[in-house]
Design a protein around this nucleic acid. Sequence first.
DNA 1: AGTTAGCACTCTCGGAGTGAGAGTGCTAAT
DNA 2: ATTAGCACTCTCACTCCGAGAGTGCTAACT
Lengths: 337, 337
Amino acid sequence: MLTGRRAEILGLVVSEYIDTAAPVSSRALVDRHHLQVSTATIRNELARLEEDGYIAQPHTSAGRVPLERGYRLYVQELMAEQPVGTDEQRTIAHQFHQAPARPEEWFSLAAHVLASAVDNVAVIVRPRTQSVVRHLQLVELQGETVLLVAVMDDGRVEQRVLQLSQAEDRSALAERAERLNQRIGGSDATTVRSLAHEEQADIDDVRVLRATAELIEARTAAEAYIEGVRSALEQPEFSSVDRMLEAVRHLQAYELARALPLPREIDPGVTRVMIGTENADDWMHDWSVVVSSFGEPSAPAGTIAVLGPTRMRYGYTIPRVRYVASLMNRLLHGRNR
Amino acid sequence: MLTGRRAEILGLVVSEYIDTAAPVSSRALVDRHHLQVSTATIRNELARLEEDGYIAQPHTSAGRVPLERGYRLYVQELMAEQPVGTDEQRTIAHQFHQAPARPEEWFSLAAHVLASAVDNVAVIVRPRTQSVVRHLQLVELQGETVLLVAVMDDGRVEQRVLQLSQAEDRSALAERAERLNQRIGGSDATTVRSLAHEEQADIDDVRVLRATAELIEARTAAEAYIEGVRSALEQPEFSSVDRMLEAVRHLQAYELARALPLPREIDPGVTRVMIGTENADDWMHDWSVVVSSFGEPSAPAGTIAVLGPTRMRYGYTIPRVRYVASLMNRLLHGRNR
DNA sequence: AGTTAGCACTCTCGGAGTGAGAGTGCTAAT
DNA sequence: ATTAGCACTCTCACTCCGAGAGTGCTAACT
């Protein structure tokens, strides 16, 4: 284990590097933190830290840069969290209170708020929900063309245009919808589909049921909301065109949805940090992720995460991810049940 | 006006530059197009074209680069359009036939298809629609909390959670909805709002009507679907970090929605090209836009555009924008009415 | 023991200098 | 009107070099 002073110095190196994005020299440490020892002493300690794999030099005459192992220890033991102050809480919560009426927009809003709070990429992934249908409705459009609207138990509303075998007026449609509602209220996609299969008499009932089953499954592909790509790209790690293109290439909804851990893999209330190669995907090996889940503990509804270079302000980011996750919880519970 | 040969040479310069992204020399023109005159002759013509402001030299010993005026003439008179071949039509149409059931996804699909067809940024803007409500529905959630779903005449479906003054069961809610439907079917936001204002007896009717009015107006902010940022950024004009950041900064939904022309400003079926400073916004002064509208001629539903550097393959891009716009038309008409 | 001053050593980074190459404009001849 | 020839200009890639930053090591000190 690390001795007190050595650990302290490692902490200083990491936080200094996070601040300045430049290799940290012994001189810089002594000067900026008014240490009571000489640079030579610091150099000795730095050499030891390097031997142990916490830090490294980009080249012989450069200062030290943290390695993954250094960041790891820093996050687990050394850093000080910077809690979300009252004012900041108010600012963030305020943006949430203007929450749009449509639930789909909550997510992009939350991602936006988080991204601008931490100046990095914020991602919210809402995975496939195994929902059941609560209610369906048929709206006449023109002739035999109708609009099928299905409301799910999780508040999702899906719609789709449908051709019936013959035109029906509004009341006939309402009747048909009500009849089907009696049969399928509370059913999942599989059940609805088997009902459609059994149905013999009414060809239009079959069509509506089939379409409903599809709507229940509509968002099987996880949806990801991404914000803050710009802020992240402004950081010095992307100061080469190649690095930047590489980042833009990977910061795509479908790719991130796959790369982030599933909500059920993260205990509720816990904020997990994954540094560099701790991330599964190769391209993320110089990214870090701060991730949390939201929703009910028994059935987590989604993942909320911040992505940034490994040189990330962990102590600043972590509390803010936690805070926004908690706001999401309140929003979903308060409004939805 | 330009003489035949001079115009021809300008055309060659522009298309050569579009291909290679490098200043075009007299030698290159003669060699690659087997011209029957010498480089000196070409140089004379180039000097004249430069005098007239069609082209310019980045520095004394460089070839020529088209100026805005050159691109303008090229697009209007000189270029050859590259029509969408049968195979390509099939490929594109095929992607459209897998059109998702939910109309909202049509737009991102179309943007995606277009972006990958032309290797540039594709944007679809769906502006505020002055819609009227066709139908509304109330779904019980829990106690006095209900979900209001409103279907608009343009196929939009909006929803919002609402608190009533007291709990009502399903049939009571259905009755209330049906009663209100009789009154507001076919009304726009203003009408619904004034009905809410007149209503005295039933506080919950007032609440539902107010909420409905808001839903009708819900998407006043134009929505933009953007795809292909990556492809655009890979072009040589963004080979400096600053340029790239600048681009990423501006390629945001809300900014583009504002910067592009409104659908009613573009005649249906017409594909307009805006080059460099012909675009209103400063940051777009070295971008070009190929833009078209879709929807019914009388009531255009949206704008579809491709953005790229002024050095854009106009002859290739224009027919493809036109084609995808026509597909959008077919999709909207065929399915929606 | 641990700490420190001093110093030689290494490596990067920016600027200056340079020659090759690309392309032009001009002139004089056809 | 066209063209060959040539002087001229400018860029670009390369090399060279010195200043500066930072280190590790050694020997002296507490």
